Simulated scan of single mutants.
Amino acid sequence: MAKLKTTAAELVAAARARIVEVETPDAIAMVEDPNVVFVDLRDVRERERSGFIPGSFHCPRGMAEFWIDPDSPYFKDIFGQEDKKFVFHCASGWRSAITTATLNDMGFEAAHLKEGFSTWAAQGGPVEKP
């Protein structure tokens, strides 16, 4: 295989350099805030296996750009709430960093959970099981 021009790790680093990253303890403090929407980008099997942040909205990674775009036939109303702060997350923060950077490029303001769901429970975050 030919060497890639840009590695996945480099894409993540570039995204992280230009987005808002929320540390896990700060995100845990936001769980009860009705103005914060946690958006879980993980695969449904990941959510089933390890649980999820209570009240989080599940948006498969491959649909994020389409679900936030009001001109898309796939638009989801939850993303039309202008008074909400959106915090995207995945398992380790890689997918959510790239997604958040892309959404910000589109004009959709969002942040992401820096370490992802991987440290959530260990740092005292509530977990809901399906």
Rank of each mutant, 00 (worst) to 15 (best):
F52S: 15
F75D: 01
F66R: 02
R61A: 14
G51P: 07
G55L: 13
S56E: 02
D69K: 06
M63N: 06
D71R: 02
G62D: 06
H58K: 00
E65Y: 08
F75R: 01
G51R: 03
D83F: 06
Q81G: 08
G62I: 05
K84Y: 07
K85A: 05
F66S: 09
S56C: 14
H58G: 03
R49P: 04
E82G: 11
E82H: 09
S56R: 10
I68V: 14
I68G: 01
Y74W: 15
S56F: 03
I68S: 09
R49C: 08
G80T: 00
R61G: 13
Q81F: 02
E82S: 15
P54Q: 05
Y74L: 09
D71Q: 06
E48Y: 10
E48T: 15
E82D: 15
K84D: 11
M63P: 03
C59Q: 15
F52W: 12
F57C: 01
K76G: 04
G51A: 10
P60L: 12
R61P: 14
A64S: 04
K85F: 00
I78Q: 15
I53M: 11
G62E: 11
P70V: 04
G51M: 01
S72Y: 02
I68C: 04
K84V: 09
C59P: 04
S50Q: 08
F79S: 08
R49H: 14
S50G: 03
G80L: 05
K85D: 06
Y74P: 00
I78S: 07
K76E: 07
F79A: 08
P70G: 10
D71M: 01
Y74I: 00
P73Q: 09
P70S: 12
D83W: 03
D77W: 06
G55D: 01
F66Y: 15
A64L: 04
G51K: 04
F75H: 11
D77C: 01
G80I: 02
Q81K: 13
S72I: 00
D71Y: 02
F57K: 00
F75G: 05
K84S: 12
G55N: 07
G55Y: 07
F79M: 07
C59K: 06
D69P: 05
R49F: 13
Y74F: 10
Q81P: 01
A64K: 03
K85I: 09
P60H: 08
G80V: 07
M63R: 00
G62Y: 03
P60Q: 14
E65V: 09
S56K: 11
G80M: 02
Q81Y: 03
G51N: 07
D83E: 15
K84C: 12
M63S: 05
E65Q: 10
F66E: 10
G62Q: 07
P70F: 14
